[in-house]
Design a protein around this nucleic acid. Structure first.
Lengths: 233, 233
DNA sequence: AATATATTGTCTCATTTTGTGGCAATAAAT
DNA sequence: ATTTATTGCCACAAAATGAGACAATATATT
């Protein structure tokens, strides 16, 4: 068994956009009714970032994705040994076996942006489901995970302008309306269509492609894609 | 001796403004020529935030200060056991005694904003000096501390608008010019006097006090102080 | 006492950005 | 051919910002 750094964990808030709602991936543990963020531990010999992206890939099947650390939660009382005991016993582990899991953990939180349709969520051995949940209708989460999700959303809002969230939450081609909807669900407010369009086009980051004929009785919108970035960093 | 969480440390980038330059506090370790950020470890029973503010207070004497976590550095190779060995042996510790210090550490980085004149830097037992160094002229730092400082500065810049850095880096009363200088050193660029003044006053966060007579042959500027915030959060 | 000097507070006008509504140009249904 | 919903784009208004000008000082110098 891999040897992990004790007392250190990570949690990932993985955002997806299904066309109308912002969602995140949650695990449900066997026979416990407990929901949690996908997370994991850090092998002794592995970089933190690397562990996290490896872990997220294992859960989602996605390799290249936007993944950024945003905060480390380090209160003593964030641990809840009783939750962990329920999960372990419900899965047939004796509490002795997993005693190191009952201890205090500091958790480094990351958020990821991902194209909803690309994901093939894969539950691990302890959890019997991993599914999308709309950010507005989350079930009760274990430990301090609700707090972590809120902090992730705040960070995402703050980074919206600089990080061009749409780039990661949408498919390669998209309409202006879809992009606007992404902005709206993240910001939690309606935006003015003309102003939004002018602003985004003014950034000179989009490339206009062919039109998309939807079969609906109105003018067909253009599709856009993000221009390759001149150079990052 | 206190029992600490293994493999977990914190480092603090403590910013001060001496009237013209942005500076940070650095430790110099006995007989080693090694400079480092003030840092420490987390007692098993203590909240992360609490450990850090306690540690910063011990180093600076300052109790109430702006202190915010900004990133956790978790690469395997950020540790440099040779540096640590030099520090320990130069201080008369055998390497065996301090072996846990030679291991891999994840470090949670904080930055603090502080009124330069309030600080009474106090070296600890391992370091023979703690002093201010201008951000532009830092000595070579141990481990990845240069990277940490750069990240702190980036964060500070990004938070300048929202966090009103001036509030914490200046004395209670200050002139508009002093506030502008704080902005200028943080942003690393000159700002236009009239525009800056109009913008800041437009925010409606300053209270105008009496004039400050400097003894210089020109109009005396008003002093300002920050209004108490209606409510934080 | 009058003048010179450096800096401040404020105003004005030009420029840029953003808010707001309007309108012609469609795809497809009727 | 007409209707319907939506899009792309333009025009004008309002607000924010850039850039400079200028009068109002504190004190030093004449």
């Amino acid at each position: 068994m891999t040897d992990y750094l004790p007392h250190i964990a990570y949690d990932a808030v993985i955002f997806g956009f299904n066309g109308s709602q912002l969602k995140i991936l949650l695990l449900e543990y066997h026979n416990t009714g407990l929901y949690a963020l996908p997370g994991g531990f850090i092998p002794r010999g592995e970089d933190l970032d690397h562990s996290v992206s490896r872990g997220v890939k294992a859960r989602t099947g996605i390799d290249q994705l936007f993944l950024e650390q945003f905060y480390t939660f380090g209160d003593v009382r964030r641990a809840s040994p009783d939750h962990m005991k329920r999960i372990l016993t419900a899965n047939g582990y004796s509490v002795d076996e997993g005693y190191w899991l009952l201890d205090r953990f500091i958790s480094i939180a990351y958020y990821a942006l991902i194209n909803y349709d690309d994901v093939k969520p894969e539950p691990d051995s302890l959890s019997d489901s991993i599914n999308w949940y709309a950010i507005e209708e989350l079930p009760e989460l274990m430990m301090d995970h609700t707090k972590i999700v809120k902090a992730a959303l705040r960070t995402l809002r703050g980074n919206l302008e600089t990080h061009l969230a749409g780039r990661n939450l949408l498919a390669r081609k998209f309409t202006m309306r879809q992009l606007q909807q992404v902005y709206e669900v993240i910001l939690g407010e309606k935006l003015r269509r003309t102003t939004f369009q002018r602003k985004i086009l003014g950034l000179d980051i989009l490339e206009r492609m062919e039109k998309q004929f939807s079969g609906k009785p109105h003018k067909a919108p253009y599709l856009y894609s993000f221009k390759p970035r001149p150079m990052d960093r």
